[in-house]
Amino acid sequence: MTGKRNPGYDKLSDELLIQKFQKEDIAAFNEIVLRYKDRLINFLFRYTGNLETAEDIAQDTFIKLYKNKHMYIEIAKFSTWFYTVAINETNTYLRKSKKNHTISVDSFDDQDKPVFEFQSNDPTPFDKININDEHFFVQKAINNLDDKHREIIILRDIQNLEYEEISKILDIPLGTVRSRINRARESLHLTLQKIFENKAIKR
């Protein structure tokens, strides 16, 4: 795999690419990797809060695709199937590494201690990614959400997936998707409110 795009493959749909890859066309796999790597890493980074972990999980996901390419059947969209694989892979990874710590909102009361503990301590992903304070605290608020709300709000508001696709990925009804997204946004708003109030008090 060279990382260079095969001419003509960029115009092909995801489904055609995976079909070609199922016929042992490595160039098609290369194209899928190039097309999905950034999207996947963005999703995984927002989900895990750690870039290295996100990259590891993304690589594991691509390897899983490489090994089990014949598992894909052209019933659903490739992106739907691929996100499902990625979420399952993330859950197993986090379960194995036992780093999937949920953060209590009460921890904001401790002024001297760091507000959030990320899964990877050094260096923080925010050091690598040049983001401002607002983005930093938004990410902290996302990480504070429980798994269900976190994954659904990332898929909808960061990955910009449709409700129907989200319902297929998470295998839940469409109504549940809508209500869960609303609840996730409300809880995120509350968390951010607390963070910014705390910050204002600090200042």
Partner: peptide
Amino acid sequence: IRKLLRSLPAVK
């Protein structure tokens, strides 16, 4: 919240 989330930079 949606605006905030969409304003988050895409991690590469």
